[in-house]
Design a protein around this nucleic acid. Structure first.
Lengths: 210, 210
DNA sequence: GTCTATATGCTGATAGAC
DNA sequence: GTCTATCAGCATATAGAC
């Protein structure tokens, strides 16, 4: 759409920038902003440091670009929640999608976790603005389900926090999860175990007593 | 006990070291290992950089000391789980204690989260050894409860992960939690809301279907 | 567009006076 | 024990040749 609205770029420039962003995501996710060096990123992208700085004017510039791009895709699953379908199905598929994202995009999850842990210096306004608005909106939908007796009454904000926490845990604390489960349960089986567990926890936890 | 077994220290030395560790915890928790500087820590501890390095021989030395101390207290609640009492009471009080720790020791939680996010370079052996052994042991207790029909059958490992994730979330993602809840729900009320929610989620989620 | 060389500033750690 | 001064190394970023 407006990918070149502000800064027109050639196709090659765009591709090189993609290459750098891909490499930077890897490095930033593992070492955090301060821990990552431009040298590492340039190495991973297969180019020299000055060459990298020809495409992005600073380390901060790369990081901001990554964060901004992350947020768009990161909140997509939450945006999709609506009150048309069955509440339990709706929540179950949200949890599933969040867990799939933790499996498929662990670096994005860790990039975000790093940013929040450091006090969210670059995204605090977005958290207090766009994110809060979105969550408030979905909380109202969930409250509607509770009033209608479709799911058990509980605090919708903390429900959302719990879904975020449990799913992202598998990306952010992956090292710990692997260490505790041992080599026997690596790979695909682990994901299905987690999915089954989370489905049971949240679905039973929200079942209407009666 | 054996606090001075390896390196005998005077009372003043011990106090200064405490002062430094307290300051370092604050800085490391916020900026991560690489992001923290000795200057910052020395400043926060109210002394000069060379003076600080008189008490700890390196930045890494401070960090290791903090991590080691952290682990002892951090796992205490898990250690206390036993199969003498009522299973639901036992799990409920474990969740409560973990949540209290997230409230009372958020810096310790973030220090640990930073370490794991970076791939656990300093604690991986401990995760694969001591932690795994401890978790395996508690998993057996939980399996016993399930076999006895005291709680619903589910994956005990992922149950523990979920408790860790949801409780530590309030320390590690504190900025985000505050941003989303807004200023209205700051302070003590937030903790009680979280405690109520988590109790409901896990207790109902583990209720035996009848 | 890409390179080598380099300016500039910061950081961990030490030397040595007091 | 605490200070000032300082070293050596590294990291961001730029200059300028090709």
């Amino acid at each position: 759409m407006d990918q070149a609205a502000r800064k027109p770029r050639t196709r090659i420039q765009i591709e090189k920038r993609e290459l750098i962003l891909e490499a930077a995501l890897e490095i930033f996710a593992q070492h955090g902003f301060r821990g990552a060096t431009i040298d590492q990123i340039a190495d991973a992208a297969g180019m020299s440091k000055p060459n990298l700085l020809y495409y992005f004017k600073s380390k901060d510039d790369i990081h901001r670009t990554l964060i901004q791009r992350l947020l768009d895709t990161w909140l997509a699953p939450l945006r999709e929640i609506d009150d048309i379908g069955d509440p339990v199905t709706e929540l179950r598929s949200y949890i599933r999608r969040k867990l799939e994202m933790a499996r498929d995009y662990p670096r994005e999850s860790r990039l975000f976790a790093n940013e929040i842990l450091q006090g969210a210096p670059r995204v605090l306004p977005m958290l207090e603005g766009e994110l809060k608005t979105l969550v408030d909106e979905k909380v109202e939908i969930i409250r509607g389900w509770m009033r209608a007796g479709k799911i058990a009454r509980t605090d919708p904000y903390h429900l959302i926090f719990a879904i975020w926490a449990t799913t992202q845990h598998y990306a952010d604390f992956d090292v710990q999860v692997r260490a505790v489960l041992g080599p026997a349960r690596d790979g695909e089986g682990r994901f299905e175990d987690a999915a089954r567990f989370l489905e049971q926890l949240f679905v039973e936890g929200l079942r209407v007593k009666g």
